[in-house]
Design a protein around this nucleic acid. Structure first.
Lengths: 354, 354
DNA sequence: TTGTAAGCGTTATCAC
DNA sequence: GTGATAACGCTTACAA
């Protein structure tokens, strides 16, 4: 016996189960895969043998035999948005690697902040074509209904980035956005030196749950710990850089002494342009969301001071693992699937191609 | 054809190669696995077919046929250290999941800060028993030599947490410690309000590369951007809580007005005890390393203000993926294997069991 | 309702 | 040097 245990007691196989239960492979397989046409007594016998031997099915072998191919489809918001583009890129990249693992990934853009459109698209999908979908978008009753329907037809569903908590989605893959908002608040509070300061919050859409939650968390911390900071009414930029760039001058005209900005949604391009054009980029403390090429640059230049982020690679890989597990009714490793709230300063930014 | 591409053109298999090359499966297999006893002309023919068809071997099927079991062994420092315990726990947990994937994990403790002992232990290992090892410890010529030897005998080697850059290790799995130190510096600088402040740095051992690098990065940022902060000579705690608790009173006796502490190594228990016993825990700004049960609590209580961390689950999973890839001479996905420098405030701390 | 046997893509043991 | 052929653990026609 090797010191590091090279020779372990082999795990039992379907053959062992068949032998112990005194049945054929086919019957064992029927039971294992809940296929019809087996007497209850027989089912029991198989289950007993499985328990006794501690059998766990070898998924790799099973998939090999089936020639199974997983088809997963992402529904992403149709907005001019670096974060979403990064998701797309990760999907495309991962897709190549995954062909080896019999997994196909695809995506499509869905009108942003438009639950009706989302519901329509979900409803039109053919369960023959997809084993699982990942939905990044707002929730309403139509969306809930569409999800319930497609789930009933055997398609696994996860909510991506923004949760759909009242739907029947199998899982949510994304960060705790309240905590993310709280983190932004804590950083902002610490970064702004003592004294009465004014703070602007930029949000995306009041329809987007993730935006709402961030705002909520941020306000919690502000009112709990940093009562000397004035939080101004928020600016709703709809993740649209141009709109944002048009809205900002008015905000600064009304309140010229804004000391900090929490940019809680997308559309950073507009904000960065505005700050640089008006020579405010080194004066205002800015905390933003999502590490993208633009925000990276802003961090390096000192236009941004911190970025709260979530790893798009992790989001996509996690989606695939979870959808696969759900399609096979297998358990998931929660700790591996938990998406971290990343905090980036200029110093700990990971290198670009990552 | 399904809308989401259910039917893709199947990937070529060894059978296709054999057919195209006009050879048998056995010969193709010999070539693919560099086994001897094939004429050069034949080898060429096979390679040509592989190129033409774009063949990529199905690892799952290969492992199934081989009945291969991967054996990976971790060498961890023998010190009273929560971080190392967390690594052990992750190894143990992952090990269970991985038996399904024909992978056995084991670990042993090696005297800390003792490269000779490490070299001895590596040299004594039997390549029959292990396919790969992960080394967490300091480097010296004996260690380098031991690594070179064991690699020559076909064992994959990765450096874990602390790099062994001049050795022949296949890969380093851990964070960029210079950047981690810089991050700590940046946070500390921002958190300490303006004015001449005194700052204490606690290090582990000057032998440990990771500790040295963090100190280096921290000092870089301090001298570049926060010149009004006085960085005191560092305290070498050797990752030993008791030693640290004995050293701290003297440091505070000499310099009572210490405003910040950067605890760059392990042994936080001693620091926390000292601060609480002396009523300093809410007064001194503390940045520490590694999210552990103790440091989590310190963060919640406000004894610590920020923690720089690396995810132990990610470290262990990444080690396994990389060792597997290296044993099979397969490529790795660099971006998935890059370990993030996590920054935790009280607000974005992940829930405990993660 | 149950069993037999072929096959998934790869490796390994024989022969020739 | 090369080629049949069985085997890995599981699924699935097709028979019985």
């Amino acid at each position: 016996m090797g010191k590091y245990g090279r020779d372990i007691n082999l795990k039992p196989t379907v053959n062992d189960i068949a032998r112990v239960a005194g049945l054929s492979l086919a019957t064992v397989d029927r039971v294992i895969n809940d296929r019809p046409g087996v007497r209850n007594v027989t089912i029991e016998r198989v289950h007993k043998a499985i328990k006794e031997l501690g059998y766990v099915r070898d998924t790799a072998a099973a998939n090999l035999a089936r020639g199974r191919i997983y088809n997963f489809h992402f529904l992403l918001p149709e907005s001019n948005n670096e974060f979403v583009s990064m998701l797309e890129q990760q999907i495309t990249e991962l897709s190549e690697v995954l062909t080896l693992e019999r997994t196909k990934l695809s995506f499509e853009r869905v009108p942003a902040f438009d639950p009706q459109a989302m519901a329509r698209i979900i409803s039109k999908m053919d369960p023959q074509d997809v084993d699982g979908i990942a939905i990044f978008g707002p929730e309403n009753s139509s969306v809930r209904e569409a999800i319930a329907q497609i789930k009933k037809r055997g398609v696994a569903v996860v909510a991506l980035v923004s949760d759909l908590p009242d739907s029947e989605r199998d899982h949510f893959i994304g960060i705790d956005n309240i905590a993310a908002g709280r983190t932004a608040g804590q950083l902002m509070g610490h970064f702004l030196a003592q004294g009465r300061k004014k703070l602007l919050v930029i949000t995306g859409s009041m329809l987007a749950r993730d935006h709402l939650e961030r705002r909520l968390g941020f306000d919690q911390v502000m009112s709990e710990k940093f009562t000397d900071i004035d939080v101004l009414p928020s600016l709703e930029g709809r993740d649209n850089p141009d709109l944002l760039e048009r809205l900002l001058p008015a905000a600064f005209a009304t309140t010229p002494d804004i000391a900090g900005i929490y940019s809680s949604a997308a559309g950073n391009a507009g904000l960065i342009n505005f700050l640089r054009l008006n020579d405010l980029d080194q004066k205002v403390m800015v905390v933003g969301h999502e590490l993208t090429p633009l925000s990276r640059d802003a961090l390096v230049q000192g236009t941004f001071d911190a970025i709260i982020s979530q790893d798009t690679g992790h989001l996509v890989r996690s989606t695939v693992r979870v959808l696969r597990a759900k399609s096979d009714s297998l358990p998931i490793n929660i700790s591996q699937e938990r998406i971290r709230i990343d905090v980036y300063l200029k110093e700990n930014m990971p290198p670009l191609g990552s």
